[in-house]
Nucleic acid binder design. Structure first.
Length: 553
RNA sequence: GGCCCGUUGGUCAAGCGGUUAAGACUCCGCCCUCUCACGGCGGCGACAAGGGUUCGAUUCCCUUACGGGUCACCA
């Protein structure tokens, strides 16, 4: 077989040689040990939390070594594309503070010296390498139809053989140049396949950055390099792109482990240096139906989509903080020792990555996020709530913006002190949390142990003694004194000692005041709440509560 | 089915031949306290099973079970 002639027949339009391409892509000049990593999604527009996690790990892997992290778009499957899919992904990951050094920035723009970073623009490059492979007798055209391939697979299954295009089943391997010419003249579609040099009795092994040594049989399949439309498969594009773009550390989901033998063989056949690999376990979820674990599913689980966290208002940094905790098992320990150090300063490494798939724990995220928000300043909280409300809760947004100083004073309650409150896990919690500041209560959850008459008496008396100009230290003693005057113990412990001597204790009294002002039995510091509400509103609310109590008679 | 990967409390996880088997989240109790939250203290709760190797296995080897992945002209 005249391979040279075959190559010319198959790729007459390809003039640029493999060598010319090699020379046009400079070797990267980076310090020893610097990792070049990438995130290479399909532009489906949907960013899965697992994808974000992979991007995050890749970015950390690069930037903890003065390396490069870039974004490449794998749009080799036209069927899955979506409008503005690239922009959506870029926004999805940069929103979380994951810095992209090179690659696609939008549908059309990119930065970096290794362009194009989108595979649909690289067709000629892949074909040049294919032409070279054909010349060397390492690839060949295959004219088998889908029906033929299916028939072969069925036969293999029936015979309990491994399915696939290999050995005696690789019919097109042995086509003569004349037959090929004839087929092409007749306009038969074809794919280009690798003539796999693999031996099924041999095994290959490689060091995975996370899983350790992995050993597998060699690849013997004549896998497709170029599809009928001339666009490469993932496998081939991976080899060419990561070689040309200088990727030295490939980080991807562990569903790729089983095709690693193909990739290693491809790098070998092409004469490329193989990159290191690290295969990440997928993020799992408890499956209520089966009780087992399963992958977070795009269809069943809203929290699979990165956009979900934005919608319900988890701060991006809080989500990142959580991702750190599942990425590196020593992160939480580090965080306890360094409560205020920026998370970027944590030294990420592969050794502390879990081999097994972690369950995505929304409860834990909630805890991480509460702690994160508790440390924010009032202004930061306000800005976070505002941005969220503007997009997802217009009514609440209007309320917030009517008087921004007032709104901020709500979020300032018990904030900035030694032990800040942890009431808010996500911005979506804030409308309910702040509700009574914007609307006087319509229903009152008064305690059951006091009579209506007693409660009315408390409120009427409290109205008389209340001084809005009291400082915090004077406020509660005033309630104590009043309690005592009305026949309540000034501290719970006195009441507990001699319950028959009192109508109740100061806690019962302040409970009545609290419910009158807010409608709720449980609130943050009452003094601060009344200060925020203002004197007039406070008095109005007491009056309203008194009327409500009277009406109930 | 073949080939891979995995399996320590409910969850996330330390551990790397000898430990009372850390810690975090959740849950429960107590303390603090005008409520709640925060915080403090304490509690419940685990090495998938069976064989080896060894003076000794959570740790090493084998088998089994279970879970996951993959076997496309999808990535």
């Amino acid at each position: 077989m005249d391979n040279k002639k075959l190559a010319e027949l198959l790729f007459p339009q390809i003039e640029q040689t493999k060598e010319e391409i090699e020379n046009s892509y400079k070797k990267r000049d980076l310090p020893q040990g610097a990792r070049v990593t990438r995130f290479a999604p399909s532009p489906t527009g949907f960013l899965h939390i697992g994808g974000l996690f992979a991007a995050f790990v890749s970015e950390r892997a690069a930037h903890t070594t003065d390396g490069v992290f870039y974004l490449r778009i794998e749009d080799t499957d036209k069927k899955r594309e979506v409008e503005n899919g690239v922009t959506g992904i870029v926004k999805g990951i940069t929103d979380f503070g994951i810095k992209i050094d090179e690659g696609m920035l939008s549908e059309t723009e990119s930065v970096g010296d290794y362009a194009p970073y989108i595979q649909s623009k690289r067709a000629k490059i892949y074909q040049s390498y294919c032409k070279d492979l054909v010349e060397k007798g390492l690839a060949y055209p295959c004219f088998c139809s889908a029906e033929e391939l299916n028939a072969v697979r069925e036969e293999q299954e029936k015979n309990k053989e491994n399915p696939g295009y290999y050995g005696k089943y690789a019919k097109c391997r042995d086509l003569t140049l004349e037959q090929i010419e004839e087929n092409i003249k007749n306009g038969m579609p074809y794919v280009l396949r690798l003539k796999s040099p693999g031996d099924e009795n041999k095994r290959i092994s490689f060091e995975d950055g996370i899983k350790g040594t992995i050993e597998m049989p060699e690849n013997i399949l004549d896998i497709v390099l170029l599809k009928t439309d001339g666009i490469p498969t993932y496998h081939f594009a991976h080899a060419i792109d990561d070689h040309l773009m200088g990727t030295n550390y490939v980080i991807r989901g562990d569903e790729w482990i089983s095709s690693a033998p193909i990739h290693l063989q491809l790098f070998d056949v092409l004469g490329f240096e193989t990159p290191s690999y690290a295969h990440i376990s997928p993020i799992m979820k408890e499956d209520e139906e089966t009780g087992g674990k399963r992958k977070l599913s795009k269809r069943k689980d809203p929290e699979a989509a990165v956009s979900y966290y934005h919608e319900v208002g988890y701060p991006n940094k809080a989500v990142l903080e959580y991702l750190y905790t599942i990425a590196n098992s020593n992160y939480e320990q580090w965080r306890m020792e360094n409560p205020d150090t920026p998370m970027e300063e944590f030294e990420f490494d592969f050794a502390h990555m879990s081999k097994a798939g972690a369950l995505f724990d929304l409860v834990k995220l909630t805890d991480v996020s509460k702690t994160y928000i508790s440390k924010l300043t009032t202004d930061e909280v306000f800005e976070g709530v505002k941005a969220w409300a503007e997009e997802y809760n217009k009514d609440f947004y209007e309320l917030l913006m009517k008087d921004t100083d007032y709104s901020k004073s709500i979020f300032a309650i018990e904030r900035g002190n030694e032990k800040p409150r942890k009431d808010i896990a996500k911005w979506e919690d804030t409308p309910a949390y702040t509700e009574y500041f914007f609307n006087a209560p319509e229903a009152y959850d008064f305690p059951e142990n006091l009579s209506k008459e007693d409660m009315i008496e408390i409120l009427q008396k409290y109205k008389k003694v209340y001084n809005h100009n009291d400082i915090a230290d004077d406020w509660f003693p005033r309630v104590r004194d009043m309690s005592e005057a009305l026949g309540y113990a000034k501290a719970p412990k006195f009441y507990k000692k001699n319950p028959e001597e009192f109508k109740g204790h100061v806690g019962d009294v302040s409970s009545v005041i609290r419910v009158a002002a807010t409608g709720r039995r449980n609130t943050p510091d009452l003094y601060q709440i009344l200060q925020v509400l203002g004197e007039k509103e406070t008095m109005d609310r007491f009056d309203r509560a008194i009327s409500a109590l009277k009406e109930e008679k």
